[in-house]
Nucleic acid binder design. Sequence first.
RNA 1: GUGGCUGUGGUGAAGUGGUUAACACGGCGGAUUGUGGCUCCGUUACGCGUGGGUUCGACUCCCACCAGUCACCCCA
Length: 426
Amino acid sequence: MLTGAPRGTKDLMPEESGSWRYIEGIMKRVAAAYGYGELRTPVFEHTELFQRGIGDTTDVVEKEMYTFEDRGKRSLTLRPENTASAVRAYVEHKVYGQGGTARYYYIGPMFRYDRPQAGRYREFHQFGCEVLGSGGPEVDAELILLALQILREAGLKELTLKLNSVGCPKCRPILRQKLKDFYAPKLELLCEDCRNRYERNPLRLLDCKTCAPHREGAPNILDCLCPECRRHFDGVQELLRAAAVDFVLDPTLVRGLDYYTKTAFEIQYPPLGAQSAVAGGGRYDGLVEEIGGPATLGSGFAMGIERLYLAMENQGLLPQVRPVYQVYAAAQGDQFGPAFKTVTKLRAAHIKTGLAEAGRSMKAQLKAANKAGARLVLIFGEEEAQRGQVVLKDMVTGSQREIAVSTVTNTLQSILQTEVEQDEQC
RNA sequence: GUGGCUGUGGUGAAGUGGUUAACACGGCGGAUUGUGGCUCCGUUACGCGUGGGUUCGACUCCCACCAGUCACCCCA
């Protein structure tokens, strides 16, 4: 072979794409039930959108973007996530001028130059939702419930919802300072990354695993929240409790994208291993302004489709979908032409019909029909053709009879229709 | 970007420094002339990730690269 698919990318063969359609179907139906409309944005954007939106110092922007220059010397980037684009579209189309709250969902490929691993790819797919123009705790709760409903409809149990608040521009500086004060004397105990974080983004000190031992007694983000953030966070929790949703507060849950404010959450499916976050999101009240729109509140989440797929596969929740012919035609000698003609008619009537390769032995053709999962087989024999008949063989019972070529479509339609009705009764 | 493990036919996989690279599945053909699923028979890798090196000789030893996989990191 010349070369395989690029590292960290993969093909979806028909057996898998069927499962994907199933998963995407759940997502779209649930999102629609919550009143979200599909938003499709370009796969690439101006690089600066992500630099500004996600944050210059984040790992995603610093070392994981697929950035390139086009022939017009513009710097473009394959989107590493969809929230910045959604906000850009919201601003560009001046949706804020319409008043009210906008609710979008998206689904599509994202790109991040990471080292591939279980549940992590360079081209991966996310489904996500964004709510723009509304800042109440009920919006955050709604998003969490929406995400959970999808996962529940997918059949997953053992989900963990982690919840935190990362504060707002009013209270975050206080936490930052407290963190710096706390870590200042232990600076040399920290790992290299954390010493770097100390300067650039002290919040990230909280979720470093190697430095966890030095976190003892560190300031708790929840103790630093301003009254407004506190009230909001309490509100989210109340709504979740009212909806009988279990969650755990995790003060170390710090999202890696700069735009988050207040609510941050993550839904994990622990059996997935290291990459167990199936969905994550939170509020981003400053993002619209950052991108050049009017001050507009926002909240959203993203869900990893590959991870959900893996989780469902792990639990045996994926439906077996493979194309199966309802009818298969076999032709003897010079009967291939008439067989082809009849097959075309059946297909026009939306009956899934296959046709054996021309010129093969009857035995080989029947074998192919069997392999294709055909329920019924039409055998175009030379003798029967003289009388304008074809043999209709039932592959389950093995019995067969002759029917007139001219009635094939009607006969098959009624047989298959009857079976569908019987299935429905069961 | 760092580290561990792995890399044999369509698939799963055995294999030893040295003649014809097991076995199973699958595929193809056949077992009295036009009929499948069971059984039986035959057949199916000039090739052992790629490129170097060591050696009289390497699929088997060494190096590099590539890919897969798991973990760190990051995140969905």
